[in-house]
């Protein structure tokens, strides 16, 4: 918000007349109307629905107050789902952003341009695939009877899980994480690489003249220079982790026995399979709490005065 006001002053380049105000409101109107109809209004309904107990097909609904929330916090499946969301969040930040950063550095400084284009194409390709297609493909990879992963493990004489990759309650969520990383690391790499390419070459040259090693250049020049890009990537990844649904739905449906459930799938099941719309809405409210809190924390972290406001928010 500080940044906004700063910008307000800077863009006062002409005194606005009343007609300009109307024009501006008219230009904003479609966005605001759509936002109101499809986001704000349903969101307020979610909050209201969370105070009721009713089913998809039931004709009436009963007011239950905060009962849904009390039940939710005592529901072990909710905590398993939350834990799984956190596993995906942490794993994604460490691997997708962390490894993406290393890859980007290699691409930025390390390899010739021709190869870099080809390699970048390969790394980024899974990102444009739908998660459903990725899920179906990987379900086959994990398949215990004809899957590639078991075959590969057998080939190098490593044991394969008795319960199957996706059937093992301790492995399933990590398998999903693995697939998510396969799909999105390239995405993070490209964002970070774009940030690195905007770093002025003089910085690198100066560092190299001072005799810095590649590793030192990476830690002392590259990373500080793209701090905000890194924070933006982390934010996208974190919020994305709470939006997880497609991969889990296709790979395990949250199973075995809720072991790989995430908040998204648990919400979906309650609403559309178990006929508990109110309970599902309570999960939605909690989910919203997490993502909004995350964004607020991020906004705080990014408040560096040297940059323009919008860019800092992303």
């Amino acid at each position: 918000m500080n940044n906004m006001s700063q910008n307000t002053i800077s863009s006062k380049h002409r005194s606005p007349g009343r007609s300009v105000h109307i024009a501006s409101y008219a230009m904003l109107a479609p966005a605001l109307v759509l936002f109101a109809i499809f986001i704000a209004y349903p969101l307020s309904n979610t909050v209201i629905s969370s105070l009721f107990e009713y089913g998809l097909t039931s004709p009436t609904r009963n007011f239950v107050g905060l009962q849904n929330f009390l039940e939710l916090f005592g529901d072990p499946v909710f905590w398993v789902s939350f834990r799984n969301n956190l596993i995906i969040l942490l794993g994604s930040v460490v691997f997708q952003v962390g490894f993406g950063l290393v890859l980007a550095a290699v691409f930025n400084r390390g390899i010739s341009r021709r190869w870099s284009t080809l390699a970048r194409t390969i790394v980024f390709a899974p990102m444009v695939m739908s998660s459903v297609a990725v899920g179906i493909l990987w379900q086959l990879v994990f398949n215990p009877s004809i899957g590639a992963l078991d075959a590969a493990m057998n080939f190098v004489r490593l044991p394969t899980p008795m319960l199957g990759w996706l059937g093992d309650p301790n492995l399933a969520i990590f398998c999903i994480l693995l697939v998510a990383c396969w799909q999105y690391t390239g995405f993070m790499m490209v964002i970070l690489l774009a940030g690195m390419q905007a770093v002025p070459n003089e910085l690198y040259e100066a560092a190299t003249l001072d005799g810095a090693t590649e590793a030192q250049v990476f830690f002392y020049v590259t990373i500080p220079a793209i701090r905000n890009v890194i924070i933006a990537s982390v934010l996208i990844t974190m919020i994305g982790s709470f939006k997880a649904f497609d991969l889990v739905y296709v790979l395990t449906l949250g199973g075995p026995a809720h072991a790989s459930e995430v908040l998204g799938t648990y919400l979906y099941k309650n609403a559309f399979n178990l006929n508990r719309m109110g309970y599902a809405s309570a999960i939605a409210v909690v989910l919203l709490g997490f993502t909004v809190t995350l964004s607020l924390i991020q906004l705080r972290l990014q408040a560096t005065p040297t940059r323009s406001p919008a860019k800092d928010v992303v």
């Binding site: 215990p144 008795m162 319960l163 199957g164 990759w165 996706l166 059937g167 093992d168 199973g255 075995p256």
Partner: peptide, 8 residues
Amino acid sequence: FNNAVNSV
């Protein structure tokens, strides 16, 4: 049964 019944 075969192995990995819950993932088949």
